[in-house]
Amino acid sequence: MNLLHDLALQRLFGGLIALLVVATVVGRLIERRTRDESAMATVQNLNARINAWWVMSVVFALAVVVGPIGSVVLFALLSFLALREFITLVPTRPSDHGALLWSFFLITPLQYLLVAVHWYGLFTILIPVYVFLFLALRIAISGDTTHFLERVSAIQWALMICVYSLSYAPALLGLSIRGHGTPGPTLLLFLVIVVQGSDVLQYIFGKLFGRRKIAPLVSPSKTVEGFLGGIAAATVLGALIWWATPFTFWQAGLQALVVALTGFGGGLVMSAVKRDRGVKDFGTIIAGHGGILDRVDSLTFAAPIFFHITRFFFGG
């Protein structure tokens, strides 16, 4: 199948480009009209975010157009970078060095290799079963028992979030759907569009109407209005692109609701991690957004849930 000639993909990417053009124009217009200095910082951050969205969209589109390998490699790199950010914040000790080398250079590539060959039976248990036990043993063998439980747990948690959960996104490419064969990239696109769209919509609704903080102790920037408006709008967005997916209009809306809610959960949990470690962002790699993990935090929660719900109800 030549993806460049896939009508649904063309429409989705066409819509994305149109949205980005509108966002860019509006962003520039707002920047030209802003006089007040504190508002200017917000507007400049907004435009930095829009610019980064162009880059991220192009990278993602290229990966999808290259084919399944492109998506697997892209997400493997994202996992690597996310893990690098996460481990930086974990209070590891020099004796964890061996376990960390395993995590970065063997476990991460192996997980994505299993995803690439669609070995469902193994990629779903590699990290939660084998690596879970192996890492604890590897760190015990190092002989350093200071804060043993904290170190083992944190490294395992980092792998579960950054590698295992994220790898479910490209795993969608191997999912076969009753009556639809292997829809491949459209499922991945649906997930990424709804998750990232939900983040953007929550941000917009929060900035426009945000009054009451929803979790002031965890994430002071999240508001009730942003949450309700963003989730509702993302649900509508998902329903409106049902034609690109194996779902009906209502099924797509329901899936989008679940994706947006789990995505919100991911963002909240990762905010708690940042608070605990005393940082505002996981990194500085994406201008306006922060680190890779700041951008994919909601995806780490939404991807595995979306995969398993889709497989359970629609798998064939």
């Binding site: 893990l83 690098r84 481990i87 930086t88 020099p94 060095h97 970065f104 990194g283």
Partner: peptide, 18 residues
């Protein structure tokens, strides 16, 4: 900053870290 965690004394290979 943090380079001693990337490649501590006595190890051969570096671990990625910011």
């Amino acid at each position: 900053e943090n380079l001693n965690r990337i490649l501590p004394k006595g190890h051969l290979l570096p671990v990625p870290m910011l």
